[in-house]
Structures are given as C-alpha cells and as structure tokens.
C-alpha cells in the first residue's frame, strides 16, 4: 500500500526558522494551524492528525479526511528545557518545549509557558495565544499557539 511520506517536522521549535519560512505567503498558509490546532481526522478509522494530512496513514486511498479543531486541552507527554536556543529565541532561554497529548486529538509539539508552575510530564495544560517571535524592527510578527499549565 502506498503511504504518503511523513510531513517534515516544523523546525521553529528547536532550530528557529529559515529565511525561506520568513515570508508573508508562508505565514499566511500556516495561520490557521498556528493560531489554533486545526488538524484533521480520518472518519474511516478515527485517527486524528495534526498538522493536517491529505491521506490517512492507516487507510490510504480509503481514507475520508475531515477537518478537526482540537480544544488544546491535554497533558504533557514529554518535555525538555532549552538552555542553548537558536538565535530566534536567544532572549527567551531558558524555555520549555514539549509534546502534549491532547484530550481530543493527537500528540502535538509546542512551547510550554512557565506560569509560576514548572511544567513536568503529566502536567495538565491548555492552549494559549502568544507571540512566537518578531522579525526585526520592520518585519512580520509571528503569533502561535503555546501551552500553559492549568
């Protein structure tokens, strides 16, 4: 069975963005999945995806993909504290990157805000809307979902 290749991992969390990604068209294409957890799921087998996939990994050509907006409530599945950040996040270190198991969706990667509670594996989190980075004095401002301990 033909299976679509895995989509490339978003690089912004760990490596910063490349110049190619710093374009207004690239931002525009990704706005919905950066502001909200807009993914999809296969109605055939109920497998949830984020980011969206064109074809279900399990069902292939039988897949029936429908858009899903996940709530953003979930639990920290894995977490790491970034002390040596890419230049993009130079002033933000140390900060947390984690994988969150959504209550109503798949595992997703994201920044985890430290709001007085040190996030750990198992910490309950919810989605927040924050600024990810600012492109200099004249460039675009990139907004993104982040997770916050409840």
């Amino acid at each position: 069975m033909w299976v679509e290749a895995e989509p490339p991992q978003w690089s912004i969390y760990t490596r910063g963005q490349t110049d190619m990604e710093r374009s207004s068209s690239s931002l525009w294409r990704k706005i919905r999945s950066r502001y909200n957890l807009v993914g999809n799921a296969c109605e055939n087998c109920n497998t949830p995806y984020f980011p969206q996939r064109i074809v279900c990994r399990k069902c292939g050509r039988k897949s029936r993909m429908v858009e899903k907006i996940y709530s953003g409530n979930g639990e920290v599945y894995s977490i790491t504290k970034i002390r040596t950040p890419p230049d993009t996040f130079r002033d933000e270190a140390p900060y947390y990157i984690g994988i969150v198991k959504l209550d109503d969706g798949p595992k997703v990667e994201g920044h985890i805000i430290e709001n007085g509670t040190e996030p750990k594996i198992g910490t309950r989190v919810r989605i927040r809307f924050r600024r990810m980075y600012v492109d200099g004095d004249e460039g675009l401002i990139y907004y993104h979902y982040k997770f916050e301990p409840v």
Partner: peptide, 16 residues
C-alpha cells in the same frame, strides 16, 4: 505583559 504578549495576544485571550 510577558515577553510573548502584546495588545493582539491579550485581545485574543479576552475574545476567546
């Protein structure tokens, strides 16, 4: 504001 907050992020959180 936090380092990652501005008038837009505050507006969104209030609006949600």
């Amino acid at each position: 504001p936090g380092r990652d907050e501005d008038a837009a992020t505050i507006a969104v959180e209030a609006a949600r």
